[in-house]
Design a protein around this nucleic acid. Sequence first.
DNA 1: CGACCGATCGTCT
DNA 2: GACGATCGGTCGA
Length: 210
Amino acid sequence: MQLLHREFYQRNNVVQIAQELIGKLLITKFDGVITSGRIVETEAYAGKTDKASHAYNGRRTNRNTMMYYDGGVSYIYICYGMHTLFNVVTNTSDVPDAVLIRGIEPMDGLTIMLERCKKSTPHPTIGRGPGNSGKALGFHLYHNGLPLSGKEIGIYDDAFPVKSIHSSKRIGVDYAGDDANLPYRFFIPGHLQVTQHANNKSAKAAALTV
DNA sequence: CGACCGATCGTCT
DNA sequence: GACGATCGGTCGA
């Protein structure tokens, strides 16, 4: 079980990193409560040149400040007023690349995750989608900017064998014009915690060799 | 199935 | 004052 360090995050290829994060173990320990999940779906957001990115064209606001930090910290923001989305900041400072964690398979602390998601029994939607993933792992806005190799958040390589990874265009970024069609979404095909979406079955969902 | 719609609030203009 | 890198429910074919 290897903790991923800044050498992993600070590389200059956010799309590659988004793909490599599939199958990794994401562990949170907030207020002494440990929960973890295996990453099964991600999306890359390529800094200043990507029309879908919050940092497109060098846009810099209070919200997206963390995207401009050195890779290896969290970027967390509220979406639609009710969902807490967790992103992995990559690349070096002033290059605002990030990877959105869109799906996790619940691992440790299932009971806690059930509580957070207000379910009494295990349910497939726990960890399905970026909003549900953030909720299950206990992320809040005040966790923005935390190191990803610290005592509260950690991403690990436990040598889990990922059989297959597919790619597709990203979800919910139709406003991004031509960039909406970039194949920057990665997921384990058919996985229970992967967003149910037409893109999964689309002929455009290309299979990648693992 | 797919299309549509309401919830709900931090953030930006 | 408008708008989301969403979600879960409903409605109709």
